[in-house]
Nucleic acid binder design. Structure first.
Lengths: 133, 133
DNA sequence: CGGCATCCTGCTAGATACTG
DNA sequence: CAGTATCTAGCAGGATGCCG
């Protein structure tokens, strides 16, 4: 994801000008390591910070904070903080966020359908190309 | 996108075990900086190396080579080399590759539909949060 | 033309420690 | 509990030069 994405600066009307620029735009948002996982978890319902943290094994507090913040900034997630003690913060998908989560899950569907075929293709390729790391 | 993705090691049956693992799998393949652009360009038809290079502004030879190779390895692209002089290599989507390109373009559609809404959301957020980089 | 090898850099994200 | 701050490493990706 973001993948160090130093914007591709697609000049309008250029070769890739019309149909792929949109793609890079989404990928700059969901292409990173954690965003989709948060998205999918929130698609199941409202979640507190801690709950997200536990639901997504391996994510650090820092990355969860950064990821949720970016999602909020883009209007995909709504953050509600209750000034209780101890503090309590709830995250919830917005309508747009739910819509994105759906699209993303459709892509996940593709992945599940073709996972085996890809695994086989890779095995075949690796067999034919012995000199690979 | 590969995004330095050090595999999330999702234990089966875990909290995110069922519906997101598939997502990471695709994103590990299309989440990087160039894959989707190549995919989309090839969706338009057979392309030679040079043609791809010109069609995707900003990509380096190295990254184009790496990207096409990964796509070949995964069975999404077929590579045909003609041993002419000078050499000539053609790239073409496989059936699976076309199917993925379609899914990806649907996601791009989402992006185009919501681009403005996200831009506005971001503007609003930035206005409300002055202390940001 | 198409591709590989090498070096170098900047960003992403992990680890750790500290606050309200 | 829900963050923030800092420091660091590792890798993606850019630039350049050579080969068949």
């Amino acid at each position: 994801m973001s993948v160090a994405h130093t914007r591709v600066t697609p000049q309008a009307g250029g070769p890739c000008g019309d149909d792929d620029c949109g793609i890079r735009e989404v990928l700059d948002r969901i292409g990173d390591k954690w965003t989709v996982l948060v998205l999918v978890e929130l698609a199941k319902g409202v979640r507190r910070f801690r709950e997200l943290h536990r639901a997504i094994p391996g994510i650090s507090q820092r990355m969860l904070t950064l990821t949720t913040r970016r999602l909020c900034r883009d209007g995909l997630v709504e953050r509600t903080a209750y000034p209780t003690i101890p503090p309590q913060v709830e995250y919830e998908l917005t309508a747009m966020g739910r819509s994105l989560a759906e699209s993303v899950q459709r892509l996940a569907g593709w992945s599940r359908e073709h996972k085996d075929a890809m695994r086989e293709a890779r095995a075949r390729w690796d067999a034919d190309h012995p000199g690979e790391a």
